[in-house]
Design a protein around this nucleic acid. Structure first.
Lengths: 108, 108
DNA sequence: CAGTTAATTAACTTTTTGGTTTAATAACGT
DNA sequence: ACGTTATTAAACCAAAAAGTTAATTAACTG
C-alpha cells in the first residue's frame, strides 16, 4: 500500500514538504492548484499508508512525516540493490562479449 | 512513473521473478491467476517505466530486469533516509520528555 | 451567541487502471 | 502451405483514483 501512496506526485511533494517539519492541512495545501478538500484526501491516503500522522492542536491537524513505511521500501529495495551491482557486472561481461564478436541486440 | 509501476503487486512479483533471471512473457504469466494478456499489459507498464526491457528470440520476448529506475527510487529515498535517523532521535527525545511528565498524545 | 477559520464528510463526475474476450501478427515445425 | 505457439492489439467493462462543490463539524474570537 505504501508504494501506491507514493505513486502520486502531489503526495510525494507533501512528504517532501513534511520532511522539513510539521505542517497543518491548509499549509500543506497552499502550494497546490487544487482544492483543500483534494489535499485533505491525499493526506488521508498518506495517513492510511502510515506515511504521516496527524496531531490535534485546536482546530489544526498538524501533520508529521512517519519514516517507518519508507524504511520498509528501503528494505524492499535491498534485494534489487544487490541486483543492480550484478547488473553492472553483467553489462561489463557483455561489453567484453561484444568485443569478441557477439551478435544479439541488447541495446537500451 | 516508476513508483506507480511499482504500486501493483503483480508487477512487483514479476520484478522479483526477473531478479532471478530472464523469462519470457508466458513464463512470467504462469504463476498468476489472470490471463496472459493481462500480464502482457503489466509488462508493457514495466517497460514504459524502464523497469524491464524485452529482447527478441524467435517468437519469444525474453524480459530482463533493468535496475536504473530502481536506483532512482533509491536516490529519492536518500533524503528520507537521513530523516528517519533524525526521527529515531526525536522519538528518543520524546521518550525522555515523557519521563519528565509530558502531556500531549503522540501514540502511533 | 454569532461569526470565522480549519478540516472533514457526502454526493457526484471524470479519468485511469486492471481485467476480460476476441482478433491479429509473427515465427516456428512439419 | 498449414497448423501451432508466443505475443500483442482492439474493443470493451467494472472498479478505483483523483478531482469537484456544497454541507457539516469543531474550535477559536469578539
Amino acid at each position: 500500500m505504501t508504494l501506491s501512496a507514493l505513486a502520486d506526485p502531489t503526495r510525494r511533494a507533501i512528504l517532501a514538504r513534511l520532511a522539513t517539519g510539521e505542517a497543518s492541512v491548509s499549509e500543506l495545501a497552499e502550494p497546490f492548484d487544487m482544492s483543500l478538500v483534494a489535499v485533505s484526501k491525499h493526506l488521508k491516503v498518506l495517513e492510511k499508508a502510515g506515511l504521516i500522522s496527524k496531531g490535534r492542536e485546536a482546530q489544526w491537524r498538524p501533520c508529521r512525516l512517519e519514516a517507518k513505511p519508507l524504511r520498509q521500501v528501503d528494505d524492499w529495495l535491498e534485494s534489487y540493490r544487490q541486483f543492480w551491482n550484478d547488473n553492472l557486472d553483467r553489462l561489463e561481461a557483455y561489453a567484453t562479449l561484444l568485443q569478441q564478436g557477439g551478435t544479439d541486440d541488447r541495446s537500451k
